[in-house]
């Protein structure tokens, strides 16, 4: 299975990455993907995603191992930003190529729930009154618990 897991320090094009991923898996029956973006709401001017080199990317690799262990995939892509992002910018792209669609959908859903609740990222937002750290959301933990993780 082809795996492409990256922690990106600069802006990226999910469309381009997905196009290359599709090209790399011509024999897969289906490709499911998810793109997460900085929500352009409120007065958030900048989002900073903080990562820690000894944990964040290794944790994403461990997640990829878990996904591969659960679903028969032809390919798995996880690209995640770190650093400063503007509203509307892409934060994450997850894509799974599989023989059958259900495996691809579920693999992406699982990976996103895990990334939202268990991955090693810390976020803060710059609003008009300064920087604010973002606390974990209960909903994200509930989403992850759907999968027994």
């Amino acid at each position: 299975m082809a795996r492409d897991v990256q922690l990106l320090e600069k802006g990226f094009s999910p469309g381009k990455a997905l196009g290359l991923f599709a090209k790399a898996h011509p024999l897969s029956g289906g490709i499911a993907s998810f793109v997460g973006k900085v929500r352009p709401d409120g007065d958030v001017k900048v989002l900073e995603l903080v990562s820690y080199e000894h944990l964040t990317l290794p944790g994403m690799e461990t997640l990829a191992n878990m996904v591969e262990g659960r679903w028969p995939l032809d390919g798995l892509l996880i690209h995640h930003r770190t650093g400063y992002l503007r509203p509307g910018a892409a934060i994450v792209l997850v894509a799974a190529a599989a023989r059958h669609r259900r495996d691809a959908f579920e693999a992406v859903d699982f990976a996103m729930d895990h990334l939202k609740s268990r991955s090693w990222f810390w976020k803060r937002e710059k609003r008009s009154d300064g920087w604010h750290w973002i606390e974990p959301r209960e909903q994200d933990h509930e989403d992850a618990s759907r999968w027994d993780i």
Binding site: G36, L49, Y52, H54, L55, H80, I91, V92, L115, K116, S117, R118, S119, W120, F121, W122, K123, W133, I134, E135, P136, R137, D140
Partner: peptide
């Protein structure tokens, strides 16, 4: 290297 890690906010 000892890292002190607050609760993650999610990706």
């Amino acid at each position: 290297e000892v890292a002190l890690l607050p609760p993650v906010s999610g990706g």
